[in-house]
């Protein structure tokens, strides 16, 4: 029972991180129909920027002030949002009419660029002024900005504040996104562009702006996931570690399993992937946790290619 509850809670926590990242994939895919491979790297940057901000602002060591966590979170979200905007503007927009595979290769290029620039040694001039950027090849420890408290205990399972916050913030952001997409004018424009960019443009929607906005929102969510992951798993792997890409890929799998292009699907998919991974690892064998995720993907694609919450599209002649 203890183990079941423990696994359940871990699954939800891990799943909400996947869901946050998956949202970025699914929104970009919904609009541009391409897999933004660089999205996993934005997640990585979210974690590392959080670390660098926290270290530069002197929040490492001791008890950080209460505003440390929100400040670092918002700072990381803002910087990554800016990055998402820049990448879209410089690398993806010129390829708007190119075949999708070109955009995909560009995304791989951007991904390689971010990782390999990220692992360069800090620039001396900046480091002297207390800002270690880029991040270097060493793994680092994220300072604990959230208090390490146990909220309550149920049948031997300690419910930690960090986990509750991870789940809470993730769900709050997802709710916000839900409202943004379905409750605002901009959201309607996003859905229109996703449905048919040409017609949307004819209806007076500034397609480029909507796409830019989509990238910014996706990157901001990935940055938030990066911050939360860094708080939950404070020993940060170095920027070029393949684990970041793998996490990104699993989040993408979550987006596909839930039904790509579907915001609620991405959330459901994220949680499902988290559950499958954790329960598989706990009750079958931890060796094969990645196999469970990718097997689930293949099964879902073969049985219901449009994803769990996706709508089947009929090919038009």
């Amino acid at each position: 029972m203890t183990r079941l509850l423990q696994t359940l809670m871990d699954g939800v926590a891990v799943g909400s991180l996947y869901a946050l990242i998956a949202l970025g994939y699914t929104m970009v895919y919904g609009i541009l129909k391409f897999i933004n491979f660089a999205h996993g790297d934005v997640f990585m940057l979210g974690a590392w920027v959080s670390f660098t901000l926290a270290a530069t602002l002197g929040f490492a060591g001791g008890a950080p002030p209460w505003f440390a966590a929100p400040l670092v979170l918002l700072g990381s979200m803002a910087l990554c949002g800016l990055l998402g905007f820049t990448v879209e503007r410089l690398a993806y927009r010129p390829l708007r009419n190119a075949p999708r595979i070109n955009v995909l290769i560009t995304a791989i290029g951007v991904s390689l660029f971010i990782e390999n620039t990220g692992q360069l040694e800090p620039i001396g001039w900046l480091a002297e002024r207390g800002l270690a950027f880029p991040f270097g090849t060493r793994p680092q420890r994220m300072p604990a900005l959230l208090p390490d408290a146990t909220l309550f205990e149920v049948v031997g399972v300690q419910v930690k504040l960090v986990d509750v916050l991870v789940i809470g913030i993730a769900f709050a952001l997802m709710g916000l996104l839900q409202w943004l997409v379905f409750g605002t004018k901009l959201g309607r424009a996003m859905r229109a562009v996703s449905h048919d960019p040409k017609t949307a443009a004819l209806m007076g929607i500034d397609v480029d702006r909507v796409i830019s906005f989509t990238f910014v929102v996706g990157s901001v969510l990935a940055a938030a996931a990066g911050f939360l992951a860094a708080e939950k798993y404070p020993s940060l792997n170095q920027p070029a570690h393949s684990t970041w890409i793998l996490l990104g890929l699993k989040a993408f799998v979550a987006a596909v399993v839930g039904g790509i292009g579907n915001v609620r699907g991405a959330m459901a998919g994220g949680l499902l992937i988290g559950m499958v991974e954790l329960f598989g690892a706990a009750y079958l064998s931890p060796q094969l946790r990645d196999v469970y995720v990718f097997s689930l993907l293949i099964v879902v694609l073969l049985v219901k290619p449009e994803g769990l919450l996706g709508k089947a599209t009929v090919e038009k002649v």
Binding site: D10, K232, T243, L246, L278, A282, P286
Partner: peptide
């Protein structure tokens, strides 16, 4: 118990 280098979540293994 086994993990793969770079994994961040060890809860399943550690619980076991």
């Amino acid at each position: 118990q086994a993990y793969t280098g770079g994994d961040q979540d060890f809860s399943a293994q550690l619980t076991a």
